[in-house]
Amino acid sequence: MDLVGFLASRWQAILQLTAEHLVIVVTAMAISVILGVVIGIAITFNRAAARIVLKFANLMMTIPSLALFALLIPVLGLGKASAIVGLVAYTQLPLIRTVYAGIMTIDSTIIVAARGMGLSDRTILFKIKVPLALPAVMAGIRTAAVMGIGIGAIAGYIGAGGLGVFIFQGINRTSDGMVLTGAIILSLIAILTDQVLGQVLGRVQRRFDP
């Protein structure tokens, strides 16, 4: 069969592109999580800023991912840099939104009690707000990571490598084995990531939920 034949003959390339895919997604996610958490926390201090940032991030999400990558080519050229920037930009919304919501939905009486006790704003942020928002942050990371894995494949179109290469080349060459290999491995990685992060999230929730 086409698929089996392809898997047997090209296993080295498959491994290489899978690894490449993971490197791109993990790098982008690392940047994205840091950026998203910092922005998400920062906007809790200013309602107007929060509105603007969330509106902007929402707008970002309506750009079709392929279009976003295509628009980055003239700026950053073909390759991994464009892919990573695109991925970071695209995965900001779920992160910013969940971090923001996670902090804003903390029971206000807890914060009143903390302030009344004489805890400094810094202590309240790092010892109370951030730990309490952790389950929400984890949920955001889960959504963003799963999204990033899928969109990372689209980066294959702009020469960033990764599993998207199989899909786009396979379609061009009408090689079903190639297309299916790319699609199946991609799906498996996404499902596995979703399940694993779901487990982690469950554990965090059990520890932190009020």
Partner: peptide, 12 residues
């Protein structure tokens, strides 16, 4: 010392 009706214990 400050105590409110909801107490506001830190749940974590």
């Amino acid at each position: 010392g400050y105590i409110i009706q909801e107490i506001g214990l830190f749940p974590h």
